[in-house]
């Protein structure tokens, strides 16, 4: 069994949001509901203020609090390390959204964050919550793993592109998109990342590139104090993007 994980080198990340776009196209995301978001924020004040950014997919945590709170086990941890949602079992209680320390989950059935509401333009058919013309083939719909266009009344989130990664040859240590043989199995955001800031591989394999990078470049996990143990690691030397460790503003 693999333990798939991601490494994001913040020194390389340019904040171009190509990952967001490719994820949106790959997974039919609604505008504004980005499974793979890049968050922009300001640190410091004029004249020394700087713009920072932070790419943030689902962390696919080892000790995922969303898995433990889900009363119907609709959110579950796969044997290969994916945290997935079974849309056939999700009751839309949204407890997982409450329990996720990273805010990476989305309830389908709510006001559109960006107008116009494309769900009203490409209306759903009763099953799907909407029906975009550019969607993937119907045969790829896999509700048990939260893949496809989600139905109404359920929660969705990044799947680590389960539909691609789960088809990778067993025992593959790294899914490097530079290798044509592995490219189609690699998550869309990793394939698209122009500055090669993203790496995807098996964290349980000490010889994988991702394991070595985490060890040699002191990979850090976001909000590690929660004990969720993310399977997404960040490399940071201080330039460019940065892991936000605290709020900018103090209490009013």
């Amino acid at each position: 069994m693999a333990k798939w994980g991601m490494v994001i080198d913040l020194d390389k990340c340019t904040g171009c949001t190509a990952c967001t776009t490719s994820c949106g196209m790959e997974n039919n995301r609604l505008p504004g509901e980005n499974w793979q978001d890049v968050l922009f924020y300001q640190e410091g004040e004029f004249p020394s203020g700087t713009l920072k950014w932070f790419p943030r997919p689902c962390m696919h945590c080892e000790n995922a609090s969303c898995v433990e709170v889900c009363p119907t086990r609709a959110t579950y941890k796969d044997a290969d390390g994916f945290v997935l949602i079974d849309w056939n079992k999700c009751i839309g209680c949204k407890y997982c959204m409450i329990a996720c320390p990273y805010g990476v989950r989305f309830y389908t059935d709510e006001k559109a964050p960006i107008q116009p509401d494309v769900k009203q333009v490409f209306k759903g058919d009763g099953q799907r919550s909407w029906n975009p013309p550019w969607r993937a083939p119907d045969s790829r719909d896999d509700w048990k793993h939260g893949v496809g266009i989600q139905p109404n009344g359920v929660v969705s989130k990044c799947t680590f592109c389960y539909h691609r990664v789960s088809k990778a040859p067993k025992g593959t240590p790294d899914l490097n998109p530079a290798n044509p043989a592995l490219r189609e199995f690699t998550p869309a955001c990793v394939v698209t990342c122009a500055p090669t800031a993203r790496y995807f591989g098996d964290l349980s394999n000490p010889n994988s590139e991702v394991s070595k990078m985490i060890a040699n470049q002191r990979g850090v996990r976001l909000r590690d104090h929660t004990g969720n143990k993310p399977q997404v690691y960040y490399l940071t030397g201080g330039a460019g993007g940065a892991v936000p460790t605290d709020r900018r503003g103090k209490k009013a």
């Binding site: 009363p71 119907t72 086990r73 609709a74 079992k89 999700c90 009751i91 839309g92 209680c93 949204k94 309830y107 389908t108 059935d109 109404n152 009344g153 359920v154 929660v155």
Partner: peptide, 14 residues
């Protein structure tokens, strides 16, 4: 809830 009736079977079976 998104699916209140689903809850009736999904809670006890899961």
């Amino acid at each position: 809830l998104g699916h209140p009736f689903r809850m009736l079977w999904a809670l006890p079976t899961s």
